[in-house]
Structures are given as structure tokens and as C-alpha cells.
Write a protein that binds this DNA or RNA. Structure first.
Length: 827
RNA sequence: GCGAAAGUGGCGGAAUUGGCAGACGCGCUGGACUUAGGAUCCAGUAGGUUACACCUGUAGGGGUUCGAGUCCCCUCUUUCGCACCA
């Protein structure tokens, strides 16, 4: 017999909706708790990964409700972007229609899982009432100087027909479709995330984030500390700046390496068009694919520029080489090459017969230029370095930098690997950038009263060679808001990561028609107390959102420094050890599981299989196990309902109970204690469910409840009665139904957390384990208040212990209170 | 190459501060019952063994300790991140 899960699930989903259980109040005497799972792209189908992620968030939500918080768990859709555009093309429809259809379909599936979501706060990034405020934020950023436009080489995905930000290129491939990324020169819009680089390195504003994510962000930002030094040109015209983290090697500079894009190189080419050799080399390198060019195994190439500069510290003349191994957009775009102490410079110098100069001596093993096979990159003793000779190279970094600063040759500084965020996308289905280009006034912001710039519907979607919005003249051509002359709209749309960088704040005030959100609501709800999502967003979404949040804080819109106080990066659901995907044919449809076993079974399976941050291996048999577990609970309570109802009228004291019922009473209280620890404090839902199963086994071991005494009934009723509470965060439908069956009239979230009483956890006798030299040799039950002397003598009188001690002398007896006695003995 | 995390039965996983390794579930073995079920109940399930006892065992090797899955050192494997960043 299966319990009627289908009926129960429908019933409670309707009850929660009608009672507005999950509609959070903006004004409330209770403390707030904001639970947020990363919103999905509306594919139309809730897949098992969604079911898994949102089951975690829902467990947090229901636990916090039980704990007495005013909980908000909103949901929305990240509905702009390439997938929607492609999906519409595939179905010969329009993304607006397909997206709204998909959203409606997903909503039904979310409800079918029984998630406690506040649907009155739903946002969808492709709707004008949302993207209006993205445009507004763009304008504010523009006014604050955080937005600028620049022409340069961009990461271009030919498949997606758009540029990509640096964060969105993985190993030279598009993060979305895997196509090789090309370089294309384009003019596009940037957000100055680098202005916040230093602050983004600081995570002191978060309460609990995985170390891994913080490390990934820190590495991405890539701060390095060093010295910027000006090398004057030999002809005295200007100078060339380098950034180095190794000022201690500056006396070892034997050449200067610059990329062909370097402004000085470009100037030389213009000044001397006859230098075809240099010209050809530069052209060839510039046109080469950036990813290939920067690959580590790429052979180093270069050409002498014909120009020299001067090492300001020792007056040495230094040849400037144009090379393929220096990056224009890192540091100053020029490198002081020290081939004796840098492997890259060494490789280059070997190839072009450039001399080496040894300036750091290995204290362990004397180095000689004649025998060196590789650069010596370690620390050591300085040599050939004027007044710094004989000093430790690490310590001398400061001294040399100070010397450089004192002589005005340069100064200490930092450099970051992170670049500004390129947010232009040459696609249709995104938020229009609220800019008008006027031939006279230049770049003009669309006035607030004209926002939002609506995305036109009548666009030719499909693969176009140019930006799709160019094909809509009635949208494109507008009068300039300043001078009224004919002007054109910006046709780039924003990266969808812009839309998702502030949605968590919009949930605080989702219907605001005057502002993105009111500062009062934002102050109440932010930061998000528990954020849940995939680790794949560690350096994309999570970094962008922190950046935009800090910008909004600087505007005074939000008060907190960080948007997400706690972050949980949940694992994936795997099948046969691999991520589920259509191409592998290993997809499990959650709807099938819901239809056959119910949403509660699916949720229990997903949460029980492993801790939330780890991957879950799909297992059909284990799903059955979860189903059997819920059926056993159902049967327990249904068949003993009279005893339970009756028992709730009575109370019991341990002294009047048989050992069996004393054990059951203990189980009720220890289970609640462990469950609270596991679920509320550790977020280890797998073990919280395990202790519930263990307790269930205790309850079902009592077979006949018709002959129980009043005291026994009381214990039994309590034992069975806590089970719905323990189940509620994970299997809420069956929990509510059983709770009602027992006779409780309030819904479970109103009843508080289950409680336990320490007095029932006190045992009058304790089982001690006795070890001899680290091996278990016996056990004994001793009164809880036994003295150390009693413990020692009792332990030493056990037959097995005596046997183990034969021929040995006891050296030491260690007593671990409540647990064990360890005897150290030797001959 | 650099950095991080991890490695526990046939499987997923427990063991929160060093204190009975393998909780709980799956699978498997045997039994009971039967309205023969994707059922339920009972017993067993790390390996070895002369089986109420003992020996071995948490990737491998060494160490600290009365006591190590847990702490320290070395090695191996896997996963993830970064990878000419000066």
C-alpha cells in the first residue's frame, strides 16, 4: 500500500497558497531572513538540477520559518540572452512569446515540487518593468563615471555573434557554446569594475563563503605588488615605463621587451614607414589569435626595434625588442627583461643571443653564466648590483624601491589582472543600452522620462551578420534629446550578467514604479542571508553582483557592503558519474518521479544522498528507499493514530517507565537535539534525515500499542508526534498531512522548532569502553556518578582486561569522562 | 608547471573539538508472512579466522600520542581552479 502522496501534495500546495504562508511581509515584528537561490534561465522544463538546488533553499526557508523568522524566498527568471533567442529561432517564434510560455510552464513545475516561494515578488529580466531599472542603473553608472566606451580588440564568438567579457572566455572557448573565441576590433561599452578591484579583494563583509570561491575571485582580480620604473629613451625624447615585481633584479636588465601594440612601437612605425621588417612582424603578431599567442608553449619571437633606452640605475644602454610574449593590457605593457633570473626572458635571450647578466647569486650552489641551463628565479644574494651587492635579494626589494623613488625614477605600485567589464552585446534579446548617438552632441543619455527604451518586437531574429537592432529603422532613428536633430540609438544590448547583478535587490521591492527599489525595503531585506547556487558563477555572476552592489552602496541605495552574507555552492546531480545531458542520454525527468512517487520522495532522495555542497549520484534504488521511508512513517502514524491521539493527553516520568520506553523517550529528545544541530546549524540535511530514520526505527520497534499504560502512551505519542516536525523542511506535504492527522490545527511553520529537554538526555548509567594500549578489551555499565576510583577498579577487574594485562605493569590509567578508560601498560 | 580540495565496505555516505571506524540508506544473504507486492516483518552484512574470543583494516609509507580516518612529514591518485600576468 502506497500513501496517497498525489492527493496530499495537491492539497497542501493549495493550502499554502491560500494561506499566503510564503508571502513575506515588508513590515514585520519578527527578524527577517532572506533566502535566495540563483534564478534560472526559463527553459520551460524544470530539470533535476533545479529540483536539487531549490530543495536546499526550501529546506532553509522552512527551517527559518519554524525558527520564527520573517522569511522571504523569492523566485524569478533570468530571461534575456542567447538561449532565448536561439530557442525562438528553433521554434519559429518570438523570444517574448516563447519566454512567457516557458515561464508559465516552469511556474507549474515549481509549485509541483512544493517550494515555498513568494510569487508576488516574481521578476523576469526581459520584462520592461524590470529592465527599465537596469537602464536606470546604467545611467547612474554613466553619470558617476563608471561607464565608458573604448575601441579595442575583443573576445568574439562567431557562433553567438557577439563579444564576450574576459570572465566569459574559458580556456579560449565561449563559456556558453564552446566555440573558439576570436579577436575582433570593436568599440564597446565598459563598466569600471577595476575601480573596485581593491575592495572586491576584501571579503570581511561576508559571514560565510566557501574559501574556494573567495580564492577564485582573488586570483581573478590578481593583485600584484611591485615597482613602476621609467626607463628614459636614449635619444632623450621620452621614456618607457615598466612594472616589475622583482626590482631586486634591475641591475640584470639586458633588454626591454614590448608588444607590437605598444604606443611607442606604433609611433615608430608611423615615423618610419620604410622599416618593413618591423612593420611586417608587428602586423603578423597583432593579427594572430590572442589565445594562441598567449599560450604557454608558444615559441617566443621578436625583433630589435632599432631603439634603445637607458637603465636609470646604472646608465646601461638597453635594446628595445618588439616581442610576441608581452601583453599590452597588463601592467604598463612593457617588461624589463632580466634573462638570468626570468625563464621567459631567458628563453628569448637564448634564441636571439642577447647577453645575460647575473645579479642574484644562489647561496646554496654557486651559479655561473657559462654553466646555467635555465634562469635562476629564486631569492639569493645580490651581486653586480652596485651598493646593494652582498645583500639578501628579498630584503633588498624595499631598499631598491626606495632608492628608485628617492631618485624619481619610479614608484612602488600595484597592478591587477582583472580588466574592466565589457558589457556590450551585439544581440537582440537583451536590455537596450539607454544611449543615443547624435552627430552634433555625441553620446547622449536617454532622459529618465523616456525610460525604458523598449526592445522592439518586429526584429528579424536569426543569424545576422550585424547587430539585429540595426534592422528596425523606426526604433533606431530618433531625434536627439538635446538638440532634436536626427540621431540613432545605441544598438548594443547589455550583457545579461548586468541584469542578474542587482535582481536580489529588486525582490525587496519588486513592484516599485519610481525606482529600482526603495532604500527602506532594501535596508530591511539586504543582504541576502543565505544565497545558494552553482560554483560555475564564482568569477562571473558573483563578482559582478558584488561590484554592482558596492556601486549601489556608494549611491546610498543599499547599506550593506556585500550582497550575499552566506553562500552555499551546491553540488550537481550526476548519473553514471557524469553530468546529466541530453547528448549523453542520461537525463532523469523529475516530473516522472513526482508522478510516480511524489515530490516529497524526490526531495528526500536529493537531500539524503549527500551533503548539499557535494554532488549527488542519481540512483533509482535509493529513490525507492526514500519512498519506502515516507511510507513507513505514514503507516506508523496511520495505524497507531488512536494511541497517539490518546497519548498526547498524558505525561510520563522516566521513573515509571520500562527500559524500552525509557529508551524511546531518550530517542525522542536526542533525535531532536541532533536534528537541530545538523539541519539548522550545520546544513547537513543528509544526517538530519538519517537521525530521523533512526528514530523512526525506534518507534516502529513497538509493535502493539493497544495494551500500553498511560505513561507509555504519552512517550509513544511524543515519539511519533515529533516526526512531522522533523520531516517538514525536507518533505513538507506529508509532514503537514500527518500533523493534521494527529490533531494539530496550526500549520507546521507556525508551531516553532521541535524542542528537547536536557533532563531526558541524562542517563543513570553510562557504558564505558576500556582500552589496553589502544585496543578495546571490554565494556562496562557504570552509574553516571561513579567516582574515578570506582571506574578504575571496576575496569581493572574485568576478565578480558585482566587477561590483556597478563605479564604487564599498568603505567597509567586515563579516564575520559562519560566515554572511556584507557590503560597504558608495559613489561 | 603552480594552487586548492579530496581519497573510508559492493555503492551513496556517517564519525562536529584526536576517544568503540563504517551511523543512516541502497544493494546483497537467509528466514517469516502472504490478498504474490516496485509489499511488509525478522536476522545478518568491512576482511580474515580455530567465530561469545582474536588478528587486520579509513590511498601508500613514516612520525607524534595512552589512543589517529582526524594532527605532522613524504609519496601516489582523483577532481577543481589558474596557467608567458613581468
Amino acid at each position: 500500500m502506497e500513501y496517497p502522496f498525489s492527493e496530499i501534495e495537491r492539497k497542501w500546495q493549495a493550502n499554502w497558497r491560500n494561506s499566503r504562508v510564503f508571502n513575506a511581509q515588508d513590515v514585520c515584528a519578527k527578524p527577517k531572513y532572506y533566502v535566495l537561490s540563483m534564478f534560472p534561465y526559463p527553459s520551460g522544463i524544470l530539470h533535476i538540477g533545479h529540483a536539487s538546488n531549490y530543495s536546499i533553499g526550501d529546506a532553509v526557508t522552512r527551517l527559518k520559518l519554524m525558527e520564527g523568522y520573517n522569511v522571504m524566498q523569492p523566485m524569478g527568471y533570468d530571461s534575456f540572452g542567447m538561449p532565448a533567442e536561439n530557442y525562438a529561432i528553433l521554434h519559429n517564434s518570438h523570444p517574448r512569446l516563447t519566454t512567457e510560455e516557458n515561464i508559465a510552464a516552469m511556474r507549474i513545475q515549481f509549485d509541483g515540487m512544493g517550494f515555498g516561494l513568494d510569487w508576488e515578488r516574481e521578476v523576469s529580466t526581459c520584462r520592461p518593468e524590470y529592465y527599465h531599472w537596469g537602464q536606470y542603473i546604467f545611467k547612474k553608472m554613466y553619470e558617476q563615471g563608471i561607464v565608458y566606451r573604448k575601441k579595442s580588440y575583443q573576445n568574439w564568438c562567431d557562433e553567438c555573434q557577439t563579444v564576450l567579457a574576459n570572465e566569459q572566455v574559458e580556456d579560449g572557448h565561449c563559456w556558453r557554446c564552446g566555440t573558439d573565441v576570436l579577436q575582433k576590433e570593436l568599440e564597446q561599452w565598459y563598466f569600471r569594475i577595476t575601480d573596485y578591484a581593491e575592495e572586491l579583494l576584501d571579503f570581511s563583509g561576508v559571514i560565510d563563503w566557501p574559501e574556494k570561491v573567495m580564492t577564485m575571485q582573488k586570483n581573478w582580480i590578481g593583485k600584484s605588488t611591485g615597482t613602476r620604473i621609467e626607463f628614459p629613451m636614449q635619444d632623450g625624447t621620452e621614456s618607457i615605463a615598466v612594472f616589475t615585481t622583482r626590482p631586486d633584479t634591475i641591475y640584470g636588465v639586458t633588454f626591454m621587451a614590448v608588444p607590437p601594440e605598444h604606443p611607442l612601437v606604433q609611433k615608430w612605425l608611423t615615423d618610419d614607414p620604410s622599416n618593413t621588417e618591423l612593420h611586417d612582424f608587428c602586423q603578423r603578431v597583432i593579427n594572430e589569435d590572442k589565445i594562441l599567442r598567449t599560450a604557454e608553449d608558444k615559441p617566443k619571437e621578436g625583433i630589435f626595434s632599432g631603439h634603445n633606452c637607458i637603465n636609470p640605475l646604472n646608465g646601461d644602454m638597453v635594446q628595445i625588442w618588439v616581442t610576441n610574449y608581452v601583453l599590452m593590457d597588463y601592467g604598463t605593457g612593457a617588461v624589463m627583461a632580466v634573462p638570468a633570473h626570468d625563464q621567459r626572458d631567458y628563453d628569448f635571450a637564448q634564441k636571439y643571443n642577447i647577453p645575460l647578466k647575473l645579479v642574484i647569486q644562489n647561496p646554496e650552489q654557486n651559479l655561473s653564466l657559462d654553466t646555467m641551463q635555465a634562469a635562476y628565479t629564486e631569492a639569493g644574494i645580490m651581486t653586480n648590483s652596485a651598493q646593494f651587492d652582498g645583500r639578501d635579494s628579498v630584503e633588498s626589494k624595499t631598499a631598491i624601491s626606495e632608492w628608485i623613488e628617492a631618485n624619481n625614477w619610479g614608484k612602488r605600485t600595484h597592478t591587477y589582472r582583472i580588466r574592466d567589464w565589457g558589457i556590450s552585446r551585439q544581440r537582440y534579446w537583451g536590455n537596450p543600452i539607454p544611449i543615443i548617438h547624435c552627430p552634433d552632441c555625441g553620446v547622449v543619455l536617454v532622459p529618465d522620462e523616456d525610460l525604458p527604451v523598449l526592445l522592439p518586437d518586429n526584429v528579424q531574429v536569426g543569424k545576422t551578420t550585424s547587430n539585429p537592432l540595426l534592422s528596425v529603422p523606426e526604433w533606431l532613428n530618433v531625434p536627439c534629446p538635446q538638440c532634436g536633430k536626427a540621431a540613432r540609438r545605441e544598438t548594443d544590448t547589455m550583457d545579461t550578467f548586468v541584469d542578474s547583478s542587482w535582481y536580489f535587490a529588486r525582490y525587496a521591492d519588486p513592484k516599485n514604479e519610481k525606482l529600482p527599489f526603495s532604500p527602506e525595503n532594501a535596508e530591511y531585506w539586504l543582504p541576502v542571508d543565505q544565497y545558494i547556487g552553482g560554483v560555475e558563477h564564482a568569477v562571473m555572476h558573483l563578482l559582478y553582483a558584488r561590484f554592482i552592489h558596492k556601486f549601489m552602496r556608494d549611491l546610498g541605495w543599499v547599506k550593506s557592503d556585500e550582497p550575499f552574507a552566506r553562500l552555499l555552492t551546491q553540488g550537481m546531480v550526476l548519473k553514471d558519474g557524469a553530468k546529466m545531458s541530453k547528448s549523453k542520454g542520461n537525463v532523469v525527468d523529475p516530473q516522472y518521479i513526482i508522478d510516480r512517487f511524489g515530490a516529497d520522495t524526490l526531495r528526500v532522495f536529493l537531500l539524503f544522498a549527500s551533503p548539499p555542497e557535494k554532488d549527488v549520484e542519481w540512483n533509482d534504488d535509493a529513490v525507492m528507499g526514500a519512498f519506502r521511508f515516507l511510507n513507513r512513517i505514514w503507516r506508523l502514524i496511520e495505524t497507531n493514530i488512536d494511541a497517539i491521539r490518546q497519548g498526547l493527553e498524558y505525561t510520563a516520568e522516566p521513573s515509571e517507565l520500562s527500559p524500552e520506553f525509557r529508551e524511546l523517550l531518550y530517542s525522542s529528545h536526542i533525535t531532536v537535539k541532533k536534528w537541530l544541530e545538523d539541519s539548522l546549524h550545520r546544513m547537513q540535511y543528509n544526517t538530519a534525515i538519517a537521525v530521523t530514520m533512526e528514530h523512526l526505527n525506534k518507534c516502529t520497534s513497538i509493535k502493539d500499542t493497544t495494551q500500553l499504560s498511560n505513561a507509555e502512551l504519552a512517550v509513544y505519542a511524543e515519539a511519533c508526534g515529533i516526526i512531522p516536525q522533523l520531516l517538514y523542511p525536507f518533505a513538507p506535504h506529508i509532514a503537514e498531512e500527518l500533523w493534521e492527522m494527529i490533531g494539530c490545527t496550526e500549520m507546521l511553520h507556525e508551531c516553532g522548532l521541535p524542542g528537547y529537554d536536557e533532563k531526558y538526555l541524562q542517563k543513570d548509567s553510562i557504558t564505558y569502553v576500556i582500552q589496553v594500549n589502544g585496543k578495546v578489551r571490554g565494556k562496562m555499565d557504570v552509574a553516571a556518578d561513579a567516582t574515578e576510583d570506582t571506574l578504575r577498579s571496576t575496569a581493572l577487574s574485568i576478565d578480558n582486561v585482566i587477561k590483556a594485562l597478563e605479564g604487564l605493569t599498568v603505567r597509567k590509567v586515563i579516564i575520559i569522562p562519560q566515554k572511556m578508560i584507557s590503560i597504558a601498560a608495559s613489561k
